[in-house]
Nucleic acid binder design. Sequence first.
RNA 1: GCCAAGGUGGCAGAGUCCGGCCGAACGCAGCGGCCUGCAGAGCCGCCCAUCGCCGGUUCAAAUCCGGCCCUUGGCUCCA
Length: 494
Amino acid sequence: MTLQVTNTLTGEREAFEPVTDDEVLLYLCGLTTSDPAHVGHARTWTHTDVIHRWLDYLGYDVRHVENFTDVNEKIVARVGEVGDDEADVARHYTQSFIEDMRALNLKRADVYPRVSEHIDEIIAMVETLVDAGYAYESNGSVYFDVSADDDYGKLSNQDIEDSEAQGDEDERAEKRNPADFALWKAGGVAPEDIEEHRHDDAAPAEEAAETAQTWDSPWGEGRPGWHIECSAMSTTHLGDTFDIHVAGSDLVFPHNENEIAQSECATGQEFANYWLHTGMVQVEDEKMSSSLQNFTSARAAIDEFGVDVLRTFFVSTVYSADPTFSEETLAEAEERWERLERGYERAVEAADGVDAYATEPDSALREAVDVTRTDFEAAMNDDLNTREAMAALLDLASAVNAHVDERDRYDFPALKRAVDAFEELGGDVFGLSFGGPDGGEVRVAEDLVELVLDLRAEEREAGNYERADELRDALDDLGIEVEDSDDGPTYRFE
RNA sequence: GCCAAGGUGGCAGAGUCCGGCCGAACGCAGCGGCCUGCAGAGCCGCCCAUCGCCGGUUCAAAUCCGGCCCUUGGCUCCA
């Protein structure tokens, strides 16, 4: 049984065959560092993470690249809110993304390239396209000539005759064909370009625009276009042709389409072999999105539900579906996760007790473990059907419960294999944390420590240093080390 | 208008590629029983589905073909 995936490029389910036998080159279109990551972003990250983990499970060596777009007018529009200039705002959100990714228990990518550190590669690629006749300069900007690329539109089936003009009036005037798109944009950022993305507490548009970064190029001072970055960064770190390109389904056109056009015209090689697109999280029958202001930030969701519940929610729909984010669906995910976790814990407790024997075979449980493994693997290989794979795991929980309920003497080898299955499939592949304290418990512990620290701060302010020290010592006895710093107290669990 | 993906029980959501094992999975909610000092957890069972509509192909269709209706995403920054 080999892995099959649905390829947006062909619209069909295909056998997965990497360019190199044992290695998989994976790219995910990352986020623009202009807003906090929300649940929709977290879902795409998590499904990509599960793909990575499944490829690991199958024995592939995965090279995983995921970019941060740190040059964009939306970032400039946040100047004054969380930073003094474009680069500063970008740093702020890049940091917050990294923290969210850690909190979500995502496997680290091999490279997190940023646009600002790949300007040379971007310029080189644009030059190649100009030299080869696929792009032209106009008023210091460079545009991709869609009519020069016979394959244009092959991902999204767009007909360039039907496409509406992109860009503002000035830009349209500079283009030969309305469907042409910018590879390089002359000058900085115009205040009116960031006006619509501005929040009330941001700096005035004029002032913010001043902080936009620009770079020297053969066509004069300017900034990279919207789509060229992903082409430059992916080919730099993965080569001209790589295996899997993941992105949200909202990026199919024009972003991914343009990536293909630029890359294949520049390198003469196939770009990505398999295109996987994740669905859009729905909130009240509408896409969750930063601009619609209907989003729950990844951070808030992790704080409210915990990573395991959130990951269970994500994995309970196939990656390509548009799942409903609501109180009901998250409550259901919570029930599912608890059922799974309880099943795991019962298996561990039964296996680690004196009532577990080597000579008490329970064929029902033994068969259930086998079925779980084969069903899970078949589901994952069938276009990464995490929903079905999860069902297999939940069936295992039922089998464990039935075994422990019905018997006084347990089948140790079978229980051990059940525990292994939970840990390898639910833990390693789905990234769920069996065994350890769950997110909720950790948060309560942290809240309690903060509560004590608040009390201690009150004593200190009142000058009751003896009492304050007693509280610190009491925490220390519990294995919580408190240190005072300029920014207030910090602590860590020993 | 054009492109793409969908429409499956009260909710949510697999199955559709490769028609029959789908008399429709897993789960949530609801109901009954077991267990139980109570509750919870768990176990067993049940309830709720003319699989968007109409027509066609077939011994057989949720699954294939045609038409229509509706939803979501894209065509503008977007996971």
